[in-house]
Simulated scan of single mutants.
Amino acid sequence: MIKTRITDMLGIQYPIIQAPMGWIARSALASAVSNAGGMGIIETSSGDLPAVREEIQKMKGLTDKPFGVNIAQAYVRDADIVSFVVDQGVKFVTTSAGDPNRYCAALKEAGLTVFHVVPSLAAAIKAIEAGVDGLVVEGGEGGGFKSSREVSTMVLLPLVCSRLDVPIVAAGGISDGRGMAAAFALGAEGVQMGTRMVSAAESPVHQNWKSAIVEAKETDTVFLNRFGPGPACRALRTEKTTLLEKEPGENGVAPEFRRSQELYFGGDMEASIALSGQVAGRIDSVKPVAEIISEMVGEFESIMDGLSARYARARA
């Protein structure tokens, strides 16, 4: 066990959280993460709450370990989303893509632990003032929908950690124990992984997307829609996204997600946008979640022990 405030709060073995990717963060992937000692998360950003409810019920049959739900505020239209989450018996929630004040008080009143996802120091301070228990600090190199003024994890994480004394999960650019050790050195007490989990064996996406991640170089993502309308995002470079990088269109990139299912599950990489982070350039194989987490923890411990021993000798 890697003991931090986050493992204590969430009751998990390792402070490793799976990102809540829309349509992807469902029971097959999330239960594998929880069973491997991390924190599996069920998404709501698909907006399909009946399916989400079904996935949560499946989770209860697939794992007896803790798991959580993400409330993606910009994509969930149900005014009763707090009641929906509470009724499922979930104890941990991450909120994202919106004002942390919107749901925090109601979730906390119901006894849930709440972390909010933030892309800047100002957003982090606002979330703490709203009463959240912790933060997911997300660097701009990560995949998915982003702030248009992205800041790298290497800059953002230590900045937030130096100003706020709350449990912090680092997100963006992390795929293994080396990245986890770096995040801890910068002040985090846990990590969140998205792209690495998209490429996992239990991920429901088509093999074409997984293969594209494995084959990607570190330069093979694009940052789209920086000037709107709508949110910016980071995705794998394809013919479509290369064109969108230069000419996003009058309505931004949002219309391109109408055919997302054809890419996600049909394997047509030009049908939509494959949201992925720069860390795709460091992922070289598809592996089961249990293997990913086991190797990650082993590498993390080896690096931390090695650094301690090496620099202890240097000081002697």
Rank of each mutant, 00 (worst) to 15 (best):
D165F: 05
V286I: 14
F300D: 10
A316H: 11
S175V: 15
L275A: 06
Q13E: 15
K108E: 06
F184R: 06
L49T: 08
A188F: 01
G277L: 02
V82K: 03
L164S: 10
I42W: 02
P248G: 06
G190P: 14
M269C: 14
E54M: 13
A232G: 04
M180Q: 13
A124V: 03
H116I: 10
S27Q: 03
L244Y: 04
K217D: 14
P231F: 01
A309V: 05
E291D: 15
T4S: 14
Y311Q: 05
C161F: 11
G98Y: 09
I213C: 10
N70L: 02
L224Y: 03
Y14Q: 05
A122N: 11
D78H: 09
E150M: 09
M1A: 13
E239I: 03
Y103G: 00
G140N: 00
L29N: 04
D220A: 11
W23R: 05
Q88I: 12
K146E: 12
E109R: 14
S199D: 12
A200Y: 01
R196T: 12
K217I: 00
S152A: 15
D48I: 10
E55L: 00
S272I: 10
Y264E: 04
S175C: 15
A30K: 01
R163G: 00
V69D: 07
E55H: 07
S294H: 05
A316Y: 07
D220I: 10
L275T: 08
Y75K: 13
A123T: 01
A216N: 09
P158C: 14
P158T: 13
G131H: 08
A72S: 14
V69A: 02
T4D: 12
V289C: 03
K240H: 03
K3N: 09
G277F: 02
S83R: 12
I16R: 02
I24V: 14
E239S: 08
K210I: 01
E295Y: 10
E129F: 06
H116M: 07
I125M: 12
D268H: 07
G37Y: 10
G140L: 00
S302F: 12
R102F: 06
N251Y: 11
C104H: 09
M39R: 00
K210S: 05
K146R: 15
F92D: 09
Y14F: 14
E215H: 06
Q261E: 01
V198L: 15
G38C: 11
I2P: 13
S45M: 11
L29F: 05
L307V: 01
Y264F: 14
I6W: 12
Q13C: 12
D284P: 03
P248I: 07
S302Q: 14
G172R: 08
V93Q: 08
D176H: 10
D99M: 02
T241I: 01
E202D: 13
D176C: 15
S120K: 06
A124R: 07
I71V: 15
A314S: 07
R237K: 15
I293N: 01
L157K: 09
R5H: 06
G230T: 02
M59L: 00
K210V: 04
M193H: 13
S276I: 14
